[in-house]
Simulated scan of single mutants.
Amino acid sequence: MTLKRLLIVAHAPSANLRRMCAALLEGARAAEIEGVETQTLGAFEARSEDVMAADGVILLTPENLGYMSGAVKDFFDRCYYPCLERTQGLPYALCIRAGSDGTGTRLGVERIVTGLRWRAIGEPLICRGEWREDFVGECRDLGMLMAAGLEAGVF
């Protein structure tokens, strides 16, 4: 069996964002999922080669001034043109830690991935407002959903 590759690209400068990132990874590596290998890279570390080697991507960003983090924007700036013709149809999921509503962050990411012609696996997970412990479980569920969908060939 050929393993699918899931890439998590995260900007997680706070303890809570690191917990969310760890939960995404934990869900993606659930015992029930055997056919997916997962790699987590910081947004400043991830390269276009990493994206092109992936079968799916999860993006994690905080909402910064009503937009994605500068690190995630930097990731897209470096990867956009090398990936443009080579990653069309790539399934992705978006997770936003939003202090307010996350709308500007969502729109900014969606504009870029629309240009790349990536395919969302569902609505973005937007963890809004004050920190809640259930954000961790929601991230775990998203990681598991993405990995299980890749393994099953749904995405």
Rank of each mutant, 00 (worst) to 15 (best):
R29S: 12
F155G: 02
A43F: 07
L41A: 06
T103M: 15
F76A: 06
L41H: 01
W131K: 10
E130K: 10
A152S: 15
S14W: 04
C79S: 15
E34C: 05
L84C: 08
N16L: 13
L24W: 02
T40S: 07
R19F: 00
P91T: 10
T103K: 14
A54H: 04
V9S: 02
I58E: 02
L6T: 07
G27M: 00
G149M: 12
A43C: 10
G108Q: 15
R117N: 09
I8H: 03
F76I: 09
L3T: 11
L125M: 05
L6H: 08
G27W: 01
L94H: 11
P13V: 09
S100M: 08
A28N: 11
G56M: 03
A54K: 07
C127R: 03
E45Q: 11
D134E: 12
R140D: 14
E45T: 04
I96H: 04
S69E: 08
G66V: 13
C21W: 00
G143K: 00
L3I: 04
L90D: 10
P82E: 06
C83R: 12
F75S: 04
E32Q: 13
S14C: 01
T61G: 10
R111G: 11
L125D: 00
A147S: 15
E49R: 09
L59T: 14
R86W: 09
L60H: 00
G122L: 03
M1L: 09
A22V: 09
G129W: 05
V51I: 07
L142D: 07
A15G: 10
T61M: 11
T105C: 15
F76T: 04
I33Q: 02
V136D: 07
G89P: 04
E34R: 12
L7T: 14
E151R: 01
E63I: 04
G89S: 11
L116A: 11
